[in-house]
């Protein structure tokens, strides 16, 4: 996020004179880009809402009021409420470990943390079936103890945790690496314990990156389809998440499927909005910081040109002697 924010900053500052394309080339390029984006971004988005309301608002709200859809909404929320905090705690621990310490095997650990990103969602679901399914390693033991994981909520949570595993860590690690350990060391020299340093110094300074990671993690957790589809068992009203509910309704009532999908699309739009807001916030902060330091260093220089050789630092020590006296 920080790099995105920084580059935004560059753009506003730089002049483009001398390396510009002719106006018609720009027009063609912009037109082609807008055409591509319109076809691949705007059209699918518009279609979701158009189809959702294709049978009127009444049908739309009736579709959302369906008890099975309601239960899918609450299951989706429950899964996210469990999965996101788990990965948040992990992300913070992993980022602390990787950003603050140097140890053997760090590169390997980083790669392993990224691993779930490169595993197909269907395979992500499958591995839990292999472990907890009836024919899986723990299947018999679980059945004997009457514990259901696969085709039940715990399986859905596990699969969701797997696919959203790296999100927070990935956002925090580069951020904490860029910040270094100076602030933490300063806190230690002032007598702070490890936990005090973490809560009062580290956490506040990565707050926005953390929120950013949580938003992305949450979006994926609420919208995951493939992995959840494998472990859910598709029991209507019990183990259907919103995504699964959309799939099921698609074969029964397309307008209702789109109505349900519109809830998820809305979630995506909110996610995008928050993400953009956070990035701009970051850029604005950077800009403010730059502007402020410019102004203040000017002010400092004007202090040094005071008559009688008096300087800002000297006036400080004048204050100091008065305080001491």
């Amino acid at each position: 996020m920080a790099s995105a924010a920084k580059s935004r900053l560059n753009r506003t500052v730089r002049s483009q004179r001398g390396t510009e394309e002719s106006p018609w080339v720009r027009a063609v390029l912009i037109g082609a880009a807008l055409g591509f984006a319109g076809l691949f971004l705007l059209l699918p988005l518009a279609n979701v809402f158009a189809q959702a309301f294709s049978k009127g608002a009444a049908h739309y709200f009736k579709a959302l009021a369906n008890p099975d859809t309601r239960s899918a909404i609450s299951l989706t929320l429950v899964v996210a409420i469990i999965a996101v905090p788990l990965n948040l705690v992990f992300g913070v621990a992993a980022a602390w470990l990787i950003a603050k310490f140097d140890f053997k095997g760090k590169a390997l650990l980083l790669t392993l943390i990224d691993l779930p990103f490169s595993v197909s969602p269907v395979v992500s679901g499958l591995i839990y079936v292999v472990l907890f399914g009836l024919q899986g390693y723990l299947g018999e033991w679980l059945q004997d103890h009457d514990i259901k994981i696969i085709f039940a909520v715990p399986g859905i949570v596990l699969a969701t945790v797997f696919v959203t595993f790296p999100f927070v860590a990935r956002e925090l690690i580069p951020l904490m690496q860029a910040q270094g350990s100076d602030q933490e060391e300063a806190a230690l020299t002032l007598g702070a314990s490890g936990w005090q340093t973490f809560w009062k110094v580290t956490l506040p300074s990565v707050k926005w990156g953390l929120i950013y990671g949580v938003i992305l993690c949450n979006a994926r957790a609420m919208g995951e389809f493939g992995a959840v589809s494998v472990v859910s068992g598709h029991i209507t009203g019990l183990t259907d998440t919103l995504s699964l509910r959309v799939e099921k309704l698609y074969n029964e009532d397309v307008a209702a499927a789109f109505a349900t999908a519109s809830v998820l699309a809305l979630l995506a739009l909110i996610t995008l909005g928050l993400k953009t807001w956070l990035e701009h916030r970051q850029a604005a902060e950077l800009l403010r910081a730059q502007a402020a330091s410019l102004i203040d260093s000017d002010a400092d220089n004007s202090h040094t040109i005071r008559p009688a050789g008096s300087t800002s630092a000297e006036s400080d020590s004048a204050t100091a002697s008065r305080a001491a006296a």
């Binding site: 912009i30 807008l34 279609n47 969602p121 919208g223 397309v254 909005g273």
Partner: peptide, 29 residues
Amino acid sequence: FPGRRLLDALVDFPFALPTAVAGLTLADL
């Protein structure tokens, strides 16, 4: 150009949109 910032934000839309919804709306289109 007008709408550049909106477009910039929308680039992440396929990433943020749940895949089932993407599939549904593309199939329908």
